[in-house]
Design a protein around this nucleic acid. Structure first.
Lengths: 367, 367
DNA sequence: GGGGATACTGTTACCGCTAACAATTGTTAG
DNA sequence: CTAACAATTGTTAGCGGTAACAGTATCCCC
């Protein structure tokens, strides 16, 4: 047995239903019933067919099946900036969740969420006959593009800011950011800077909003704020820019963990200690951030919950297109580690200690 | 214009070739020709058909097309441990490369490269009618499973240790590791530890081999070696274990950057400074490692080259199944950063300085 | 003006499967 | 014994395309 794999047929010149049917001495439909576990087959027949299937190493051709049954067992995922931790982790998580529901994932991705790209992704996925689509949508601006491409198809939008025609799941970024900022405030910080991710991403602008609201609620002045790309590299540059601006701050809310990592490096290089001089908080809780120096305090998102939920919702929308389109919200939580410390000195930054006082860096009133 | 998207047909109840044909007053085949850019259509007819296509928002159903044409424009990717940086980055990179060749990627993944899982992945992909498969194979042990599942299909194996029936691309992990180790030696290190990834992964065992060979070539004793999972978490634990064993070392080759990150944290926590007391080298050059403290010296792999090459090879194998199956090797390079320093003290570790001398930690002879 | 390219366009048969319905056999009740 | 009904199994017609082949004009040339 298992003598020469060479003479075994390539799995790509497939055995068909008909050949199996002939071998088993039944009609092709009976084979189809066996394959699809229909109860309408006599036990003896089923056994005979199964034996033939095994012997001939038959595998159903899902392309043909999809065509006939008008389903593909494929779920499309549209995503952007796959390089950053959030999206890429989400994809693997979705892929895993899909497997459990015996679906597969086809990814269409683009660098930036611009209209044309969304259209392209949608068309591509449509072309593959996906049964439903999950859109990881970083911005609410492109909903029209979605509707144009997907119409009434089963679509779940992940990260959409507010309710609209598709089922949506949203992480409450603003809340997460507010919690993070408030935590800094309870640690005594009064000058809290913010390095956002790209502000045309909803999560970024919401996180910045949370930061602002938290400070306003405490009647604290807004610290300096800059925008950055999602990478550590960009976070480093943004922090440098922040330092160069000489605006004072003793704490920093970064757009994600990667930006936070870059920020910390920039701080260290400028002789600023973390957390004794500046505290840092990130977003995403990537597995590595626990091992940063110091371990990063960060806002955790339950990606697995997010992906299982969204998959459940698409499959549900697929099987019942009439189901109401709900809006779900996922609440993040703060993981406290050592990158945040109490504010001990009034102005926490080493080499700029003197300069800071003189700068017109404050806004609002600290009552 | 663009009044109510509601009344627009869902893109999922598709317009067919026949409806377009009728609308344009031609046969379905003519429409097919237009869609496939056949030169055998008169300019006027083509224009008329194109107008109908645009008006009706027709999109070809690729499932039907795939069935008829026996191709799917889908390439399957089998991969393992998607959580670690290498595989996950490779997937996004492949996905991008595929897009440029107007292919799409379907991923089938499993936690560990065991026989059953490989079989399952293969069957799943076959089921989706992929035209070819890229297997990111961390171990050579399962080639039989591949042959059983894929037969003579167009398969490219990425990371296979040596030539076999399929086209293979290999990163020369051993060379990379040797270079890394030799670099440590040139920096004066004599006691070089190794934290491998899981040793049933080829890349791990090859990296350990490279480390060993480099030391043997210099007639240096092998430092302590332990095995670890791919995560920072595991790297941390492994390093702790290494320290507990009290075997002396002044440098450390880690299985990947994440392990290195965990290792560095463990070292710091034990009061060991990097690089002045222990130097650390990682593998993969993930974008973050430049911002570790200290920035990590690491072995870089050109993932983009890897993915474009492998995609080229599959598509080539698809179009010409008779093409010879070659074996390609990709050479990594060492990125030098600050986590490695010259060995300054004979025994470089703080709290164990005295103990180390007395320990029977050496093997081999230092001639 | 007829024969034969040339340039299009249409017809017919699949691809491998599912869905709907028809046919067959066995069982039961009247 | 036979109608009525289950329980199985078979038949036929697509799904939406492509491929191969078969027309039908049109044009050119002798």
């Amino acid at each position: 047995m298992h003598q020469s794999p060479q003479q075994k047929k390539s799995s790509f010149d497939r055995v068909t239903l008909y050949e199996v049917a002939e071998a088993a001495g039944v009609s092709h439909q009976t084979v189809s019933r066996v394959v699809n576990a229909s109860p309408l087959v006599a036990e003896r027949t089923r056994a005979r067919v199964l034996k033939a299937i095994a012997r001939m190493n038959y595998r159903p051709n899902s392309v043909a099946r999809n065509l006939a049954a008008r389903r593909s067992a494929l779920i499309g995922v549209i995503t952007f900036a796959v390089e950053s931790y959030g999206p890429s982790h989400l994809i693997t998580s979705l892929s895993e969740a899909a497997r459990k529901l015996s679906y597969h994932i086809v990814v269409a991705s683009a660098e930036y969420p611009v209209l044309d790209e969304i259209r392209r992704c949608g068309t591509e996925l449509r072309g593959h006959g996906v049964d439903g689509v999950i859109v990881i949508l970083p911005t609410s601006l492109r909903l029209r593009a979605l509707e144009e491409v997907f119409g009434d198809a089963p679509v779940v939008v992940l990260g959409a800011r507010r309710q609209h025609r598709y089922t949506a799941i949203e992480i409450d970024h603003e809340l997460g950011s507010r919690q993070a900022t408030e935590y800094l405030v309870t640690q005594g910080h009064r000058e809290i800077a913010c390095i956002s991710g790209p502000l045309d991403w909803d999560c970024s602008s919401l996180r910045r909003l949370g930061w602002r609201r938290a400070l306003e609620a405490r009647k604290l002045p807004l610290g300096p704020a800059v925008e950055s790309e999602w990478s550590a590299e960009a976070g480093y540059a943004a922090t440098q820019q922040l330092l160069d601006s000489r605006a004072p701050f003793t704490a920093l809310v970064a757009g994600n963990d990667q930006i936070a990592l870059g920020a910390m490096e920039a701080l260290w290089e400028n002789g600023i200690e973390i957390p004794s001089q500046v505290s840092v908080i990130g977003f995403d809780n990537m597995p590595e951030s626990k091992f940063f120096r110091p371990p990063l305090t960060t806002v955790n998102h339950d990606f697995d919950l997010l992906s299982t939920t969204s998959l459940h919702l698409v499959t549900q929308a697929i099987s019942d297109p009439q189901a109401p389109r709900l809006h779900h919200k996922i609440v993040p939580d703060l993981i406290i580690r050592q990158s945040v410390g109490p504010m001990v000195r009034e102005i926490g930054r080493g080499r700029r200690r003197a300069a800071a006082r003189r700068l017109p860096g404050r806004r609002g009133k600290a009552e």
